[in-house]
């Protein structure tokens, strides 16, 4: 709502954080962003056997304005990229993005003129989910991991602090190109 962002750091804020995190993770509304093969697996996840309703997420919203999670399911073409960004911009804050499948995460096997090499060129991504396509169980796992992340999300001054710490850690981290040794 905005008030929670202005709370002073301390006991009250952490309590609000926990409550807000719990509420947010318990009732996420995913936007339907089915693009290709992964979209079929996403629909399967919502259907009978895997039953996304167990996690309070069965209501896929057609309108991005009512959604807070975008599951980018499939390959993003150069023609689709502006549309995807517009849908993301229409979603209200707070919002999260799952990049489902290798094509959305890195372009996958389609390293060519038509496909955007990773949806993180266009929107910030919270969870990368590998697989071509990932099984519904993997999507459920990604969603549960995102729930954990949402539960622990900071608010207001705490978020600014967390962001600063994350940036500090990223600066100190060894760039991938300078890493040596086995691929682990």
């Amino acid at each position: 709502m905005g008030i929670e962002e202005k709370l002073p750091s301390g006991f009250l804020l952490t309590t609000v954080e926990q409550a807000a995190g719990w509420v947010r993770k318990s009732s996420m509304f995913p936007a339907t962003f089915g693009l290709a093969c992964c979209a079929i697996e996403m629909m399967t996840t919502g259907a009978g056997r895997y039953d996304l309703a167990r996690f309070g997420m069965e209501v896929f919203r057609g309108s991005p304005r009512q959604a807070d999670l975008m599951i980018v399911a499939g390959r993003v073409s150069q023609k689709m990229a502006p549309v995807l960004r517009q849908v993301y911009d229409q979603m209200p804050n707070p919002k999260w993005v799952i990049s489902m499948g290798v094509c959305a995460s890195s372009g996958g096997m389609f390293n060519n003129y038509a496909i955007v090499q990773g949806v993180d060129h266009i929107v910030p991504v919270d969870i990368y989910l590998p697989g071509c396509p990932p099984r519904p169980e993997m999507l459920l796992d990604a969603i549960l991991k995102l729930h954990q992340h949402v539960q622990g999300e900071k608010i207001g001054v705490n978020r600014e602090k967390a962001a600063r710490e994350a940036e500090e850690a990223a600066r100190k981290a060894l760039p991938t190109i300078e890493m040596k040794g086995l691929l682990r």
């Binding site: 073409s77 023609k79 549309v83 060519n112």
Partner: peptide, 11 residues
């Protein structure tokens, strides 16, 4: 159409 053009034929 063309929003899912993947260039498979070229690949």
């Amino acid at each position: 159409i063309g929003y899912l053009h993947t260039g498979i034929e070229k690949n």
